[in-house]
Amino acid sequence: MENQWSKFRLRVNVKTDMAAAYKAWNTSEALESWFLRKAVFKDAEGNLKDKKAPIVEGDTYEWFWYGYPDSVVEKGKVLKANGKNVFSFTFSLECPVTITIYEEAGETIVELVESDLPTDTETALKYFVGDSRGWIFYMANLKSILEGGLDLRNKRMELTNVITS
């Protein structure tokens, strides 16, 4: 039996087509429109990528969030980017996060699975709970942005401990 703390799955329905949903994950510019303050990608040779360049398997990244100083940075690697419906990358503790986009009941679904999380109590509390909490907000913000809504992110450094950053 799989440990229930080793992964979590989040799904959001979005009123857009699959191509637009995938595009939201596929460039630095797109990620900065709903998720990150700054997304820096480098290709497999270590060259800085243009913000409009598609992200591909083997790229590495540095991600920065609103509400946090530049000392708070997530570094990782793109594991898969098929240009259509799957985008996967390493995240906390180099655990894989896989985004899968598909249709269900006539709607576009964006599904996020973070897996291979360590299951000891301290790690489970910090990463399972902390990461899922953050991803819930960002998936809701993705829905809001893609459906022509508001950007819900807190962009003010002086406001801390809010669920929007």
Rank of each mutant, 00 (worst) to 15 (best):
M18R: 14
A19C: 11
A19D: 14
A21S: 10
A21F: 01
A24F: 01
A24D: 01
A30Y: 03
A30R: 00
L31M: 09
S33K: 13
W34K: 10
F35W: 13
L36R: 00
L36H: 00
L36S: 02
A39S: 09
A44I: 14
E45S: 15
E45T: 15
E45N: 14
G46Q: 07
K52C: 06
K52S: 15
A53M: 11
A53Q: 12
P54G: 01
I55R: 01
G58C: 12
G58W: 09
G58T: 10
G58Y: 13
D59Q: 02
D59I: 00
Y61T: 14
E62L: 08
W63L: 09
W63N: 07
F64W: 08
W65L: 10
G67N: 09
Y68D: 08
Y68S: 09
Y68W: 12
D70E: 14
S71Y: 11
V72I: 13
V73D: 08
E74Y: 13
K77V: 08
V78M: 02
V78F: 07
G83T: 09
G83S: 09
G83P: 09
K84W: 04
K84P: 08
V86K: 06
V86A: 06
V86Y: 01
F87P: 01
F87L: 10
S88K: 04
S88A: 15
F89L: 14
F89E: 03
F91V: 01
C95F: 02
P96R: 03
T98H: 08
T98W: 08
T98M: 10
I99S: 00
I101N: 03
E104S: 15
A105Q: 14
E107A: 14
T108F: 00
I109M: 02
E111Q: 09
L112W: 04
L112C: 05
E114N: 03
E114H: 14
E114A: 03
E114K: 04
S115M: 07
S115A: 15
S115D: 08
D116S: 10
D116E: 15
D116F: 03
P118V: 08
T119A: 07
T121H: 11
